[in-house]
Design a protein around this nucleic acid. Structure first.
Lengths: 328, 328
DNA sequence: CTGAAAGCGCTTACAG
DNA sequence: CTGAAAGCGCTTACAG
């Protein structure tokens, strides 16, 4: 302001191409010297779009939320964007109304959606209606590839199945997540198919439904381990439920892994705190958050630049101390 | 708009007392009928203050962050405020500059500060300078009572000490949090004083410094349990470090609680997942988040209304399965 | 390439 | 108790 122009400053801040290199440098210099920072609210009002990214979630696992959040923040560091966290309840009768109000009011720059809310097509339609860019993190391709981060949970579960089959287990049980999570179905599918390829099958009595929570893992494990012919290995749909399996096994005096092998999914902090350390399928949640956010920011620039690519995440089995050949 | 006045609507939305009851009702009715929601950015611009609450944190424990966040969101439900999460690093050379830029730019409605960043007076001075209301959650009264939620960690730790002394332990060790956390000192002080009152003392070799992380708990436990005369009980400054103690004990084949008693602090989800279930001092983190937020919202209304009260949280020892009399 | 005008959707003084 | 004006700090068309 003090030296040359006036609202050319705005052009410099928004990197308009119509500024002479000379003036741009001059203005930039003054901006950083004075430490000027434009008001995001005023900018947002003029742009009809805020400088906020929303993280909308309904995942019951705290570790997942924190990790994801960290990844998103990693990608947002050194930007002028902020992260607005917004939990929701998909089963609430006011769910869509709440989302509508949130999205319309906040005029978000974009949102990151994680399971299971990322699988909700009603929400996605709402976002499209309000021209709110979004990235969906989910276990399969549900949408336009350029809006997706796909975790291929099917493959991770298959690895778990192959590992258990290879070390000699035949009586293998599965504790699934709730049916409202697509990942629960994908993990079961991958697990089941890999068992079949190994010449095994998932018996109905070994196929249990959990809720991705510690308590539901306890309940399912109790049922499984009190069967007349209990399984020698249990694959839990996530680490929280695997922790529940541990608890029941300990209470029953079962030695892990000698008398019972356990595999989890997520390879979260919980996996490392269990004893013996849990063999688990690693999902790089923090990276997923970062990648999703980078993709969201990229969405604007390369609008249909030819590289409408899906972002793939390949889970990987981390073999630790909770799996061993069955005692025969 | 369609019926009577025009910018009286604004008065209705901000509950100005200068509106006839009749018109107020009429306008309110139309507002909820049409589903009108004012734009927070425009309001914020005019108010020179945004409709965002900031949560500034540097705590290394994910569980703590999520719980607190949930509590804050509990209190913000059904308001038009949003929660902006902002991690920081107090040891970064650019820390104060970053905070300055964040607070100045965002014009936050207020911020919630948790340990250890809540103990940083430089940050608090910065907030005061920018007229940004704040609530500090900390283990002791550091400031004006009306800006504080005090957790009295000293008392919780004392309870732990009394419990261990009562069941007959004499060789009791303490693993503290990092010295940059006030809570680490408070917990040690309460623990030490209660031991003294029980006729015991905390020997220097049993007084270990950790970092509130799982790994630091492992390291400290390893040192303690390989002493010539190892302790029969360990009080860890938080559950994460207690989990580290468990790991070392398991690896050394020590039975908890028969050969080693362990007490944690936080009574977090981790405590329930350990086996045997951890005896721990309960800190109601989610409630703390809710109370802090309610207090923040209250700060405006009852500006010096006579009740400049501190909000007290009293931690409580939850006795579970990880403590028992020592084998003598 | 750069400036003067009008506007984003609300609010605060200011008159009535 | 209610309206017409001016302004919050930026931006987008619009002229030069």
């Amino acid at each position: 302001m003090a030296n040359v122009s006036k609202k050319t400053v705005s052009r410099v801040i928004n990197n308009s191409p119509f500024v002479k290199e000379e003036t741009r440098l001059k203005v930039s210099a003054i901006i950083s010297e004075v430490g000027f920072e434009p008001d995001p609210q005023a900018r947002g009002l003029a742009f009809r779009r805020s400088f906020l990214v929303g993280m909308i979630y309904d995942n019951p696992t705290p570790q997942y939320i924190v990790d994801l959040q960290q990844g998103i923040l990693d990608a947002m560091r050194n930007t002028s964007y902020g992260l607005l966290v917004h939990p929701c309840d998909r089963s609430s009768p006011t769910f869509l109304r709440d989302m509508h109000s949130f999205v319309e009011r906040r005029k978000l720059f974009g949102v990151i959606l994680t399971p299971s809310i990322s699988e909700d097509d009603r929400l996605v339609r709402l976002l499209q209606e309000f021209d709110c860019p979004y990235i969906r993190v989910a276990s399969v391709l549900l949408d336009n590839p350029e809006t997706m981060v796909v975790t291929h949970d099917c493959m991770g579960a298959a690895e778990a199945a192959r590992h258990l089959a290879e070390i000699g287990h035949e009586r293998i049980a599965y504790i699934s997540g709730p049916p409202t999570f697509r990942s629960a179905h994908e993990r079961r599918r991958g697990f089941r198919e890999a068992l079949t390829q190994s010449g095994l099958k998932l018996r109905p009595s070994y196929d249990r439904e959990g809720a991705y929570t510690f308590d539901s893992g306890i309940e399912a494990a109790r049922e499984l381990l009190t069967l007349k012919l209990p399984p020698t290995a249990i694959f839990a749909g996530n680490d929280e439920m695997a922790a529940g399996v541990y608890k029941v096994a300990h209470a029953m005096g079962l030695d892990i892994p000698r008398e019972l092998s356990v595999v989890g999914y997520d390879d979260s902090a919980t996996a490392a705190r269990l004893w013996p350390v849990l063999t688990s399928v690693r999902l790089p949640v923090r990276d997923m958050g970062r990648l999703a956010t980078e993709k969201l920011f990229g969405l604007k620039e390369k609008k249909h630049s030819g590289e409408d690519m899906v972002t793939d995440i390949f889970p990987k089995l981390m073999i630790r101390e909770s799996t061993a050949p069955p005692v025969s």
